[in-house]
Design a protein around this nucleic acid. Structure first.
Lengths: 251, 251
DNA sequence: CCTCCTGATTGATAAATATCAATCATAGAA
DNA sequence: TTCTATGATTGATATTTATCAATCAGGAGG
């Protein structure tokens, strides 16, 4: 592990409250590692031996069944993922693979489980993190069940704009085919949907998104606090598709 | 609150580990109440003032947006719901209404938050519960994204049979229109789908489900541990549609 | 610079799902 | 019991979404 990794991890909401002594003990047992792009880090169903922390790069969480596959989330620095499986000592429900070259820290889940039983502050942080993850997942399910694909696309584009500071233009943080899978649709359908949204106040040219008529887009999306946020709790949850600016994840 | 309510609540995984003293203090601040059928207990967006515990009857958790509505879960005795909102002191993401006459206990979330900071055993229970809720939600989202409606119906029917002890016949625990909403489809579509499933090894006559060819149904469903369980962790989570036999929730 | 590869787009079509309207069935109320 | 209201079912149709096939576009590597 590099010396400058530690402060960054310590800064994570999950780790900043715990006793320094416990933090150091935990990091003692952990190790950092670099991975190439496209590497499968975790397979569905594997035992949850390590909590993962993304320091650099990005990681896709995905699920598969009967030969089908779908993207559940993308995790960007600095966030953790699959905390729940580690806590319960249960098999991972999702698989994970690097999207680009990535640097991760692996924290043995056995040590993790020991420490939150001894360190009440850490327990509180775990509670906060899990509650945030849960609520993010509920928002997600609501979006899937209450909105059709066009509405999901439109709300995604508008939300990303808000997360970047209500900018009128920004770059998509992921490939379109991944975005399509995350939104629960096919790439072809996303492509066509983006075209029809041009008359609804947003234009996508390659990776660039341009909000051409925010009022109109707003009227279509009907953004909902209880689906789209603002969602301060999810920022530390490492769930959902990343924001444009990784820095805003830090706080 | 009735005297015989307390042991039952104390028996819940969430409350059985905590110091008796803290449990009693918490119950001191709580109160039980009876509600008629169809009463809206919680509205989306309301501040999370109370953790709810279902003692008798059943409660539907649902979500709405843009005039649409969908069922997210049904909670049966004895389980809690909306723990995450209480923990985070954040607005409820889902609404709740009684399905039949119901008896609930309302635990003030302010007291709840105070106590898990002082009682490490309770904190651990909260962690377990939240992790279970999260994982249940992930399974749910996987089912929605990876399966079509026919597959969701078939897997639901097979899973209920397993939960009731691999019985060949059982009664649906909820109305079909609610089941349809839970599974993310229209009642009409559920009706038609049930008809087509008769050739796939399961027959539904009114509320009665009869597995006529388990092997065939299994082949269609391809039950997956990581979607359908067995899911010991969800039993205490009060998420998902109820099992046939409420008693099996207790442990 | 070109070539190749992957992802994006487009069009044509098929399949899945929803909607609308009309019964049908049933349980509870009078 | 009969009436009534609600949920379930069915058929016809419309809409949404996926699939298949064929380009198209742009970046990485030679």
């Amino acid at each position: 592990m590099r010396p400058d990794d530690l402060p960054e991890i310590r800064h994570l909401p999950l780790f900043q409250g715990m006793a320094l002594e416990n933090f150091e003990a935990l990091m003692e047992k952990s190790y950092a590692q670099n991975f190439p792009a496209g590497l499968e880090l975790i397979r569905q169903g594997d035992p949850a031996d390590f909590l993962h922390v993304v320091l650099e790069g990005s990681v896709e969480l995905y699920a598969s069944w009967a030969g089908r596959e779908c993207t559940m989330a993308v995790v960007r620095p600095v966030s953790t993922f699959i905390l729940a499986a580690c806590i319960k000592d249960a098999p991972y429900l999702m698989a994970a693979r690097t999207l680009g070259r990535s640097r991760l820290i692996l924290v043995p889940s056995a040590d993790l489980r020991q420490i939150f039983r001894r360190d009440p502050e850490f327990a509180v942080s775990v509670i906060d993190e899990l509650a945030a993850c849960y609520r993010t997942m509920v928002r997600n399910a609501k979006s899937l069940k209450l909105r059709n694909s066009r509405e999901r696309v439109a709300s995604y584009l508008l939300r990303q704009s808000r997360l970047a500071g209500d900018v009128a233009s920004y770059m998509l943080p992921v490939e379109k085919r991944l975005l399509a899978s995350y939104l629960g649709m096919t790439p072809e359908n996303l492509s066509r949907t983006l075209r029809t949204l041009e008359s609804a106040g947003v234009k996508v040219d390659g990776m660039r998104v341009i909000i051409t008529d925010r009022a109109k887009l707003n009227a279509l999306v009907q953004p909902d606090l209880l689906i789209d946020g603002p969602d301060p709790e999810a920022i530390s949850a490492g769930i959902g598709l990343p924001m444009i600016n990784a820095a805003s994840y830090r706080r």
